[in-house]
Structures are given as structure tokens and as C-alpha cells.
């Protein structure tokens, strides 16, 4: 998902406190920043929320690529609004992570140093305008699958950030579907572009949920803590079941010859993505990893004088009334 393969931290706390903490979570209580929490819970959350925040910010890059080339002024205004939302989502999430005792600058520096990750999906290029449709429809669609249940996560600030994000995310998916619909019903060349975008984004979208985690110890711990609400396989299945009829409506073909409705399980059988490719992308060997990180590094470096200058200005202004006395 936006946070993939988050390893949970082992926790070595007082068993009595741990049991009381688990009881609060089981009772559906929200954990707030000043409450006692196991070190493992805190560290796992910092990693997960941080990764989620980085994904929102890096996710602006593939879409930003098309702002200057959007086909109409209306599409351009819509895409600008969407990319601005992603910046907002990143901010909500960084703030949620900060309540756990890490600063936003520390998180950014960890990303730039390669110590923290962002979702594998944003390492794929957006080659045509149809890709912007596919990203909204599929990538935001997959993100919603994960984010809707996370509104009920046990950590208060994370849950509240998710509620805010989910309110806005539906606009993102619909605008993507709208682009796809326009192209799928357009000229033959436009229809081919839409099909090509689906072909390239289908499997990377399935990878967003991460590999099967039914035997993962980390996932089990995170699920007990209500940091993770569903298994990766459950969410992937739900995504496929929701998306295939939409593709059929568009008259597009999902690039999976083994895709079949399975009446017995009440869902589609489908092919797994290439997990070797997924791990290569995570390791930094995807088509755009270097480009994405370089863009973040440049923004961080180029913005340094602005961050410093505004602080200096604020300090000078704060000192001014004192000097006048």
C-alpha cells in the first residue's frame, strides 16, 4: 500500500503494562500521543506513518509531470488541485508522525538518506496523459482500499488524518476514472492510449498492497495493535473485484489472461504480479527511483535558503518591538 512491508518493532516492555495497553485497543479506545505506549508500537507507527507521508509527497512528482501539458485548462486546474491535495495529505501525516516524537525534518532527512521508503508505485513513469487517468483510477483506488479501514486505526492522530484524507481521496479516483472514460470513448488512438496505460499500471497497482502476508509475524503484531486492519491479500482481492467491472464498463481489457470470475469464492481469480520486480523497485532499481529521490533532494536543497530566511525574518520581527522600547 502507501506503506508497504512495514516491519513491526519487537517490544520489551513490562508485560502487565502491555496487557493493559492491548485491553484498551481491544475495547476500541483510541491511543493518544501522551498515553503510555509500547516502544514497538511507537516505532512501528513512526515508520508506517512516515512512509505513508513520503508517498504522498513523492506521489506529486509523476502527476506534476503533466500539469504543464494537460489537454485543457479545466483538466489543468483539476490536476493542480489534486496535486495540492497530495501535499496536504503529506502534511497531515507528517504532523501525525510528529506527535510520536520525531520531527518532520528528521523524517525528510531519513527519506533522502535512503533510510525510509515510499510506495513502490511512484517509481513508475507517467508517459502519456492517459497515465494520469490510470494513476487516479487505479493508484488512488488502491490507496482508498487501504485508507478507508485505517480511519479506525488505534492511534488517534493517524485515524484523524485518515478521516480527513479519505474525504478528499474520492475526488482523486473519480477524476482519474473520468479521464479514462473520456479517452476510452474517444478516437481509436485515444482508446489505445487508455489501454496502454491500464496495461502498464495494472500489475504495479496490485503490488501496492505488498506481498502475501498471511504468515507474517510483523503483520500479526500490527493487526493486534490495529495499526494494520486487513491482510494484503484481502485488500488486493477487494481491489480486483471492484476494478474489473469498471474496466469492462470502459471497454478496456485487464492485462491478465488468467483473470476469471470464481462464483464459489464470490470474487475473481487473478495472476500475481511479478514479485521479483517489486523487490527490485524497493531496492532502488525501478525505472524512476533515482529521478524521484533526486527531485526531492533538489527541492530540499533549493528550499534551504527560504526556510532559513523566513526564520531569520521572524526572529528579527519578534525582536523589533523590544529594540524600540
Amino acid at each position: 500500500m502507501y506503506a508497504q512491508m512495514v516491519t513491526s518493532e519487537a517490544t520489551q516492555d513490562d508485560p502487565e503494562k502491555l496487557a493493559a495497553f492491548q485491553a484498551r485497543i481491544d475495547a476500541g479506545e483510541k491511543i493518544e500521543p501522551k498515553d503510555w505506549m509500547p516502544e514497538g508500537y511507537r516505532k512501528t507507527l513512526i515508520r508506517q506513518i512516515g512512509q505513508h507521508a513520503h508517498s504522498e509527497i513523492v506521489g506529486q512528482l509523476p502527476e506534476g509531470n503533466w500539469i504543464t501539458r494537460a489537454p485543457t485548462l479545466e483538466r489543468k486546474a483539476i490536476l493542480l488541485a489534486k496535486v495540492q491535495d497530495e501535499a496536504g495529505h503529506g502534511l497531515y501525516l507528517y504532523c501525525a508522525a510528529e506527535t510520536l516524537g520525531v520531527s518532520r525534518d528528521e523524517l525528510t532527512e531519513a527519506l533522502l538518506a535512503g533510510k525510509m521508503k515510499y510506495s513502490s508505485i511512484f517509481n513508475y513513469p507517467t508517459l502519456t496523459w492517459a497515465d494520469i487517468g490510470a494513476v487516479g483510477w487505479l493508484v488512488d483506488g488502491a490507496a482508498i482500499m487501504n485508507q478507508v479501514p485505517l480511519q479506525r486505526t488505534s492511534f488517534g492522530p493517524y485515524s484523524r488524518a485518515m478521516i480527513r484524507i479519505c474525504k478528499e481521496e474520492s475526488f482523486h479516483q473519480r477524476q482519474g476514472f473520468d479521464i479514462m472514460r473520456k479517452m476510452a470513448t474517444g478516437t481509436e488512438a485515444q482508446r489505445r492510449m487508455a489501454q496502454d496505460a491500464l496495461n502498464r499500471f495494472w500489475y504495479p497497482s496490485l503490488m501496492m498492497f505488498g506481498p502475501s502476508d498471511k504468515d507474517s509475524v510483523h503483520s500479526a503484531q500490527s493487526m493486534r495493535w490495529k495499526i494494520k486492519m486487513n491482510t494484503n491479500d484481502e485488500l488486493r482481492q477487494k481491489f480486483v473485484d471492484q476494478t474489473v467491472p469498471q474496466a469492462e464498463y470502459l471497454g478496456l481489457t485487464v492485462p491478465d489472461p488468467d483473470l476469471r470470475w470464481n462464483a464459489e469464492k464470490g470474487g475473481y481469480d487473478f495472476s500475481e504480479p511479478d514479485w521479483t520486480e517489486f523487490f527490485e523497485v524497493l531496492k532502488g532499481n525501478g525505472p524512476c527511483n533515482a529521478e524521484r529521490l533526486a527531485a526531492r533532494q533538489k527541492a530540499w536543497d533549493d528550499g534551504a535558503w527560504v526556510r532559513e530566511g523566513l526564520m531569520a525574518h521572524a526572529a528579527k520581527r519578534a525582536a523589533a518591538p523590544l529594540a524600540a522600547e
Binding site: 495540492q84 496536504g88 502534511l91 504532523c95 488524518a161
Partner: peptide, 23 residues
Amino acid sequence: VGSLHAPDAEMAMRHARDVYTRR
């Protein structure tokens, strides 16, 4: 509604407008 970083109150106000009142 939430929090944000800003160098001073004036910038905090501008950022709050952009981050929290887009709709």
C-alpha cells in the same frame, strides 16, 4: 483541526488557509 509548521503567525495563517480550508 490539526497542526502545521510555519516561521511566524502570518505564515501560519497563510499555510492554514491552504492546508485546511481548500473546500
